[in-house]
Amino acid sequence: MSILSTRKAEKIDSLAEGGTSLAMDALRRTFRSPVAILGLVIVGLFVILAIISPFIAPKDPYRPYPELKAELTPSNIPGPMPGFLLGSDQNGYDFFSRLLVGAQQTLFVGVFATLIGVAVGMIIGGLAGAFGGWVDSVLMRLTDIMLSIPSLLLAISIAALLPGSQWTVIIAVAMIGVPVFARLLRGAMIAQRSSDHVLAATALGVKRKTIVFRHMLPNSIGPVIVQATLTLATAIIDAAALSFLGLGDSDWRRAEWGLMLGNAQELLSVKPSLAFFPAIAIIIVALGFTLLGESMRESLDPKNRR
């Protein structure tokens, strides 16, 4: 085929694509941008690491090693030595293995905090958006109040109620997201309610339940997915902040980056890498989720649609 006819074929193809959904369109646009690909690569590597890390960790991250313990004093934490790539942590455990396995626990906290936030938020926002009226008013007042407490303080006040465990951190961090997701879904659904296709479905006599689940929800889900991606980043950071304030997981042995960073704060002058490596890991992962979320948001914006 000549260049000209290839061009023509492409043009026709692109015309045919005019009928694709906004979601497909956005997805394609997302992965045209290098920023999105970078985000996706970071997130992908992180997830793979989280899955395989228990198998590739050179040492057991959950037991002290005598060779490390031998040299461990309050003012000296052993650095790299044969067999221990990054040396010891403050308890004589292998720091490198803990750093690797930390990916798993960190992903666990981030994903569950986000999922719970999304689930509760979507129930609230979905009810408000589907019913409107007084249900809407009451639920939205509730989210306004949750939004009126600075996010970290909301997490702190919930964490203070519960015993210090990993699930406490997850629930406390999840609550930060609840009002955001509720408002987001409600806004999107209200926009849907007055749209032409919902009006058409109503006129055809489709049941309200079907309209909500078949027409309104699927069309409102885009912004929620974007926000969830961005929330994953902040959830990991907020969990670290709770640990830093002493409201984190009381199981100090658990290898989770936020917890490791929080517990290393007193040891900056002894072995700064104990804080720096978990922090850098958190920053890279948070950046990955942010890049991915931001580029998805940008491409979902109809203004950028060509």
């Binding site: 950071i237 670290a240 900056l268 922090a279 920053i283 948070a286 950046l287």
Partner: peptide, 21 residues
């Protein structure tokens, strides 16, 4: 984007480490 991804308290530590220690 990096600014948002860095935990505030870690940035504090980092600044403290560089400019005081």
């Amino acid at each position: 984007l990096v600014g948002v991804a860095v935990p505030v308290f870690f940035l504090g530590f980092l600044l403290k480490y560089i400019f005081t220690q």
